[in-house]
């Protein structure tokens, strides 16, 4: 008898979108902001990004090998985690910071809980918060535009590795939000920060958060490729603005609100991290509540907390609520509870 044809249950066709293409799209979308970060903060920023990515990929590879789990990092999700982690670090950190962060993100946050799809927090953000708590000083020394002149000797590199570029150059600057937070009561926000600089990205901050323009280009790409929907980002930012008007203490000061929206990684967080599939609600109602809570928490952390930034903590806190949100927001099935007509 002739060989038999394949038999499987329908459907027999699949869309061309795979986990790998989604991760590739996210990585592509992060490139503009990363490039700008490197341009702005110099070679150290590049080193931080690369170290972070390599650490994440290696950590995943070695863990899977060690645990005899099938498959290589085929989905390239580790690259995205690594890139996001790097973008959430100041360019001035010593290189062991992204290494610790990468291992923490991949092993502790992701793999120990079952790997891809099972982590309950965004790995990159969880790692960032872990680093922020552990190494507060190093994690808040932000470099400002500096192409370090040909510091290429081995000793110097070693020094950079151990202590970070910040301590070498002694250049560091506060982020715009910190400036707003610490400014004198009489001053106006416009005197302290320049919106134009914030939009283009010429301010202090972590590598990937500063240029709103570059981030929005990346976000537009993700929307165009239908990788993310705008539901969470827009509700997040909208709720953030509303609560800022209520609690911000600056009244209806548009310049202040714009500065707060553009600063502190809100755009990076809203479009790239709050939309992380694994750690955001799957239902529409859940996503709406998620977005509103993110806005509220970010405002509370920023206005009443010690830090000028609050996006990371808001997101990882809301990540924890996701299973609950999903459980109680299952949509009503089509035609359910429908009235029988014609009887």
């Amino acid at each position: 008898m002739k060989s038999m044809y394949h038999v499987s249950a329908s459907p027999h066709i699949r869309s061309s979108v795979t986990t790998a293409t989604i991760m590739r799209d996210v990585a592509i979308a992060l490139i503009p902001a990363s490039l700008l970060g490197v341009y702005q903060f110099g070679f150290n920023a590049f080193l931080v990004l690369v170290t972070s990515i390599v650490t994440c990929v290696l950590a995943e590879y070695l863990y899977k090998k060690l645990m005899k789990k099938p498959g290589l990092p085929y989905e390239s999700s580790a690259i995205v985690t690594g890139l996001l982690l790097g973008m959430n670090l100041p360019s001035t950190v010593p290189l062991w910071i992204p290494i610790i962060g990468g291992v923490f993100a991949i092993i502790i946050v992701k793999e120990l809980y079952g790997g891809l799809g099972q982590n309950f927090m965004n790995p990159a953000l969880a790692a960032r918060c872990f680093l922020l708590i552990s190494f507060a000083g190093r994690m808040t020394a932000f470099g400002v535009s500096s192409f370090n002149e040909a510091q290429s000797s081995v000793t110097k590199n070693l020094y950079t590795f151990l202590n970070g570029a910040g301590s070498l150059d002694g250049i560091s600057s506060a982020t715009p939000l910190a400036q707003i937070k610490t400014m004198e009561a009489a001053a106006s926000v416009a005197d302290v920060v320049s919106l134009k600089d914030m939009f283009l990205g010429f301010t202090g901050g972590v590598i990937g958060e500063t240029s709103i323009l570059a981030l929005l280009i990346g976000a537009a790409y993700l929307v165009f490729r239908k990788v993310i929907s705008l539901r969470i980002p827009l509700i997040y930012i909208g709720s953030f603005v509303v609560f800022l008007l209520l609690f911000g203490g600056h009244g209806f000061d548009l310049y202040y609100i714009a500065a707060e929206v553009c600063g502190g990684g809100l755009i990076l967080g809203a479009f790239f991290m709050a939309t992380d599939y694994v750690t955001s609600p799957i239902t529409k109602t859940g996503q709406v509540i998620f977005g509103v809570l993110l806005g509220l928490l970010t405002v509370l952390f920023r206005v009443f907390g010690n830090n000028a930034e609050g996006v990371s903590f808001a997101i990882i806190f809301c990540n924890l609520l996701v299973p609950l949100l999903d459980k109680y927001t299952v949509p009503v099935a089509f035609g359910k509870g429908g009235r029988k007509n014609g009887k």
Partner: peptide
Amino acid sequence: IDPVTLKPTTPCIRCGRCMEACPSHLVPQM
């Protein structure tokens, strides 16, 4: 070529596409 063989099975990443696609408004992922 059997189109089914072309797509590898990887872990669910909770992207929600199944829910968006479901005409019965169910949550296949759950």
